[in-house]
Design a binder for these strands. Sequence first.
DNA 1: ACAAAACACCTAGTATTACAAGGTATTAAA
DNA 2: TTTAATACCTTGTAATACTAGGTGTTTTGT
Lengths: 114, 114
Amino acid sequence: MKNEFISKWTSQVKKGVLSFIVLNALSKKELYGYELIEVVKKSTAIEMAEGTLYPLMNRLKKEGLTSSKWVEQPSGIPRKYYTLTQEGKLTLQQMRQYWAALELSIKKITENEI
Amino acid sequence: MKNEFISKWTSQVKKGVLSFIVLNALSKKELYGYELIEVVKKSTAIEMAEGTLYPLMNRLKKEGLTSSKWVEQPSGIPRKYYTLTQEGKLTLQQMRQYWAALELSIKKITENEI
DNA sequence: ACAAAACACCTAGTATTACAAGGTATTAAA
DNA sequence: TTTAATACCTTGTAATACTAGGTGTTTTGT
């Protein structure tokens, strides 16, 4: 199988979607980076590479949508936990509105035919 | 208003989504470029710039998902009509499957909280 | 005891694509 | 007669997912 076009396409679809997914995940509880990848993989069947996540988390923080704190572990490497800021929550609400409209649009244009 | 982050985000979300929308539109009937912009604007409330559409149509054709033909007009500039190829139809079906899964994933991760 | 896998963070470089801002040319409306 | 609408196009820029690397610790398997 493995349609070359499709795999490029799914990668493009993820642009933007991943930040939406991450913010949604963080709206439920604070998470650290590595954990986020696991959560996304398990609850959405979407693969997110580490090389995607960490730069993304830096952007979200720089934009003021999240804040982070280091948490030492009794054993092992310290974890960097992320939380939604107030601005992050507001932005997430706007994103959800846009997404709902987009879903509807695509539902409409998808119906019938092929 | 005008959240800077949101407008950048919506632009990113469109990457990939626009090709999906265009292929869906073409699955109903053949259309020419300028018409596609109108159709998308009217039926989905999604803005697509000309500078986005024409390069996109070239990519889709190069990938073998569409074919095109020039149609002279009784008056005015000739129109370039696009049609889905067989491969285009197959690819579109795969895209629809992926999209359905994505919708579900996001629905799941969106539910509750903020 | 030792190797491999899993955990947990990170960066640099590449490919892709939406968009802004331009361009050409024709026809209809003001 | 000048503006808007129709219809095609291109160039350059910004943003982001991914590949492929890197560091170091802890747990699991043999």
